[in-house]
C-alpha cells in the first residue's frame, strides 16, 4: 500500500471515530430499562447476583453457544497441527517449578471460591475458569505440565463436559415448555451444576489454547 492510500485510510478511520462519537453523544437514553427488569426478576432466577442471573438464566442461550464456540476454537487449534518449536530452550529452574507447584493448589482453591461466590457477588464460572487456566499456563511455563500434542480420552471428555452438562440442562427445560427454562425450585441447584461443569471445561479449554502446541525444549536434564 503506498503512502497516499495509507493516509486516506487513516483519515477515513478518523472520520469514522468522529461520526461514532457524534452518534453516541446524541443517542437518546435506552427506551427499555433493562436493569429494572433484571432486578424485578432476580427473585425467581435462582441466584442473587444480576450478572450471573443474566449469564446463566435470562440469556443462557448466548452462554451455551459461547461455550460451543470455545470448544470449536480449541478443536480448530488442535486440527491446525503442531508446528516446529521456535522458542529458545529454557534452563530448568527448580525455584520456579517449586513455586508453581505451591501456587497451583491455591489457584484451584481460589477458582472454587469464585465459582461459589458467583451466586451472590461478582464471580462465577468464567472468572473461576480464568484462574484455573492461569494455573495451567503457570505449570506449563514452570515445567511440571507438558504440552498437549494429543489430548487423551479423559481430557477430551473433561473438555466437552461443560458444554454437554449445559446442553442437557437446556434440553431438560423442554419438558417445562421452553429450552433453557429452569424449574423454579431447582433453578439455583441447576445453575450451580452448570457453572461447576463450565468451570472445569472452560478452564481446561482456555489453558488448552496455550497448552496445545509443541513441547518447549529444555536446556538440560530435568530434575
Amino acid at each position: 500500500m503506498n503512502r497516499w492510500a495509507s493516509v486516506a485510510v487513516a483519515l477515513l478511520c478518523a472520520v469514522l471515530a468522529l461520526a461514532l462519537a457524534w452518534a453516541m453523544w446524541d443517542l437518546p437514553p435506552a427506551p427499555v430499562a433493562l436493569p429494572a427488569q433484571v432486578a424485578g426478576s432476580l427473585a425467581i432466577s435462582g441466584v442473587e447476583h444480576p450478572v450471573t442471573a443474566v449469564l446463566l438464566n435470562f440469556r443462557g442461550y448466548d452462554t451455551l453457544l459461547e461455550v460451543g464456540v470455545l470448544l470449536i476454537a480449541l478443536l480448530g487449534m488442535l486440527a491446525a497441527g503442531a508446528t516446529p518449536e521456535r522458542m529458545t530452550a529454557l534452563p530448568p529452574d527448580p525455584v520456579l517449578e517449586g513455586l508453581a507447584r505451591l501456587l497451583a493448589p491455591l489457584m484451584v482453591l481460589v477458582a472454587g471460591y469464585l465459582l461459589w461466590a458467583g451466586a451472590f457477588r461478582p464471580g462465577g464460572a468464567f472468572q473461576a475458569a480464568a484462574v484455573l487456566a492461569a494455573a495451567g499456563v503457570l505449570l506449563r511455563l514452570a515445567g511440571p505440565v507438558t504440552a498437549w500434542t494429543r489430548p487423551g480420552r479423559v481430557l477430551r471428555l473433561a473438555l466437552a463436559a461443560g458444554f454437554v452438562v449445559f446442553l442437557a440442562v437446556a434440553v431438560l427445560g423442554l419438558a417445562q415448555g421452553a429450552m433453557l427454562e429452569y424449574p423454579r425450585a431447582w433453578a439455583g441447584s441447576l445453575i450451580l451444576a452448570v457453572e461447576a461443569g463450565l468451570t472445569v471445561s472452560l478452564g481446561l479449554t482456555l489453558a488448552g489454547l496455550f497448552l496445545a502446541g509443541p513441547e518447549i525444549p529444555r536446556g538440560g536434564p530435568r530434575t
Partner: peptide
Amino acid sequence: DPVPQAMVLTGIVVAVAATALALA
C-alpha cells in the same frame, strides 16, 4: 446495567478463543 456486562463477559472469552485460533 447487568445485561451488557454479561454479554461483554461472554464476548471477552470468545475474543480470547478467536485470538488463540488466529495465532495458531
